[in-house]
Design a protein around this nucleic acid. Sequence first.
DNA 1: TGAAATTACTTTGACAGACAGAGTACTTTT
DNA 2: AAAAGTACTCTGTCTGTCAAAGTAATTTCA
Lengths: 109, 109
Amino acid sequence: MVRSDIIRGHLDSIILRLILEKDRYGYEISQEISLRTNNRFQIKEATLYAVFQRLEKKELIEAYYGDVSHGGKRKYYCITPLGKAYLKELVSEWMEVKEIINLFMEGLE
Amino acid sequence: MVRSDIIRGHLDSIILRLILEKDRYGYEISQEISLRTNNRFQIKEATLYAVFQRLEKKELIEAYYGDVSHGGKRKYYCITPLGKAYLKELVSEWMEVKEIINLFMEGLE
DNA sequence: TGAAATTACTTTGACAGACAGAGTACTTTT
DNA sequence: AAAAGTACTCTGTCTGTCAAAGTAATTTCA
């Protein structure tokens, strides 16, 4: 399991990306992250919902209620045009950060 | 300039790596980071000295005073065996984190 | 000479992101 | 009917980073 303070700052990207693929609800996203990373990373509930709040306040995502077929009522999120633009920025930022950190990790692998 | 909350968590790695190369003092490290990253990232003074404190408390680095030839007295840091081992761990952690984040950024470049 | 710039380190207080823990509430399984 | 699983919310806390302000010595150059 990867320490979360090392993923810190990338959660917005990860969640926006998953919502870009299709509208999703919280629990689904948390499951999807565990699945795709093979349990190498798991987002904590409290963190996930904090991210939602942050993204919604910035108008990068929007919420609507879905069905209640399984357990509690699902709150779906969709990405806004602003959110799409922001994600694009985050992706190119990631490219740059990766380059920079690699600069210092090189020759130590 | 890269936002610092996206580099967050990697500062220990960066600084340990620079001290691994040779004993260094604070101001030198801050200059070296700016230089190597072409000013794409600059560590803030307060942050740098906070990192030193953290690493020293964990016995990953050790301090000694050097000359005073230019301005203030220089406080040099060297890496301990524990620090070397820790850096090694951080490097492999970075490889894993990179993989995980790439997983979510793929197809958006 | 002496004012300004540069080198070098320290401390304090504030902020933001992530999380543990606890709670609410509904559905499915056994 | 109890237990397990689904699904969201809230509060308080911790950690890393940073702005701002301070101390102090050396070098530059007018």
